[in-house]
Design a protein around this nucleic acid. Structure first.
Length: 423
DNA sequence: TCTGGGGTCCTAGGACCC
DNA sequence: TCTGGGGTCCTAGGACCC
């Protein structure tokens, strides 16, 4: 049976989450900021209309914010992750096959619903159910390929007359929408390719579809070729309902205040390493490669700038925080330079494998491994108990890495103290 | 003063082997 | 001056996504 993809995408998801618990924010301009209150990452329709652009640094839109009394929130990932889980759970019941694509969107396979009216109606049903059960508004795009489903969703969001559902199973409608869509809106066509395409005289998605496949392959890559095939209705990207194990784990942050002191930076990097190690254990994985990177701000023209990273291998695969933190510390030492104001640091773990697929090394000490596992389990249990935290000597916990979060909303759904009250 | 974080995939080029 | 051919594996960097 030919696949029928539906892309369900929440409307300005982070803003919608904030609105759930503050209904007075409906119809008002609202924005949510990235970590550190750096950039705008989610905007309500009203904020978009006022000219707040996506990814704009806060200081560049501060005027607009004040002039129009835009409501501002720091990002509250605990809240968004919990609402996301509710959305996905509801969707699971509406479709047998689904792929969670990101925190706020999922692909469904609707191959069972074949008649044209049935599909559109089912799309509306999805919208209504999610709004009723979770309270989050969504748009649905339906099409024979994922890239076209993305396009359909773009149409549903962009043109309110669609009522939030666009069915692109029909070729004539595909062509119509492709014709009025700028090429840069297509899934897989980023900023660089958009510029290059425009230089070739290709401005609309329809013009892209008409590009010969060999040209796409030669001038761009196999990725572009696939995009064009998909836009032509030929499915090249399958539904992936069993996400593969992670290939790398990254923990990095920009700092609210620059760091100049080695010990402070070391504590921060150790904390990142410990966090990364914890994520590793959550996925029952082990790592053999640790990478540490540090940098000054790339935006500051007046200051001396420096960026460097270092990578090293552990002697065997491990997910023991002690080993990972120790190696990260060594790596930091090797790239640290005095007299710079550091703006960002990160720890990346690569070369991952699943714990139960591990080939023991020749010099592995099984007893030591068992001991390490027990210790790490104990640490994770305590840290997840909600009753206290333990950490290694070098870490800098509870400091939130010098982050700015001036507009944080309560963790309404995941902390007892923050439960909303009704009077 | 203030510019996110966490990923994936592809490609080119170097190292190395026979 | 001429300086193999073919293959694999690894890595860094680019482009893209949300």
């Amino acid at each position: 049976m030919k696949p029928v993809y539906a892309l369900v995408d929440c409307n300005n998801f982070y803003v919608s989450c904030e609105r759930l618990f503050k209904p007075q924010l409906k119809k008002r301009p609202v924005i949510v900021l990235s970590n550190n209150d750096g950039c705008v990452v989610s905007r309500s329709q009203e904020a978009k209309a006022l000219g707040v652009s996506m990814a704009a640094p806060l200081f560049k839109v501060r005027d607009l914010v004040e002039r129009h009394q835009i409501e501002v929130f720091s990002s509250n990932y605990a809240l968004y992750a919990d609402i996301s889980a509710r959305v996905m759970h509801t969707l699971e019941e509406l479709s047998p096959e689904m792929e969670i694509y990101s925190i706020d969107e999922a692909f469904l396979n609707l191959a069972g619903f074949n008649s044209k009216d049935g599909l559109h109606q089912h799309g509306q049903h999805i919208c209504h159910t999610l709004y009723q059960h979770v309270g989050v508004p969504v748009c649905v795009g339906i099409a024979p390929t994922k890239t076209l489903a993305k396009l359909a969703n773009y149409g549903a969001k962009h043109y309110p007359a669609t009522g939030g559902v666009v069915d692109l199973m029909d070729q004539r409608r595909q062509k119509k929408l492709l014709h009025i869509t700028p090429v840069g809106e297509i899934w897989g066509v980023g900023r660089r390719s958009t510029l290059q395409l425009q230089n070739m005289g290709i401005n609309t998605a329809l013009q892209l579809v008409q590009m010969p496949l060999q040209t796409a392959r030669r001038r761009f890559s196999i990725v572009m070729e696939r995009t064009i095939r998909e836009l032509n209705g030929e499915p090249c990207i399958e539904l992936d309902n069993q996400p593969a194990a992670k290939q790398q784990i990254l923990c990095s942050r920009s700092f609210g205040q620059k760091i100049t002191d080695y010990d402070q930076l070391r504590e921060t990097v150790c904390e990142f390493a410990a966090r990364a190690a914890e994520k590793l254990r959550q996925g029952q994985q082990m790592t053999q490669m640790v990478n540490v990177s540090i940098r000054t701000s790339p935006f500051d023209a007046h200051e001396p700038c420096y960026a460097n990273s270092a990578t090293a291998k552990l002697s065997t695969y491990s997910n023991d925080s002690r080993e990972i933190v120790a190696l990260a510390t060594q790596l930091l030492k090797s790239i640290w330079k005095e007299d710079y104001r550091y703006a960002k640091a990160g720890v990346m773990l690569g070369d991952l494998c699943l714990e139960d697929r591990l080939q023991p090394g020749l010099f592995d000490d099984p007893q030591q491994r068992a001991h390490s596992r027990q210790l790490m389990q104990a640490i994770d249990q305590i840290n997840h108990s909600g009753r206290g935290k333990v950490w290694l000597g070098g870490q800098r916990p509870q400091q939130d890495w010098f982050m700015n979060r001036a507009h944080l909303s309560p963790a309404y759904t995941t902390r007892w103290e923050d439960l909303p009250q009704v009077f």
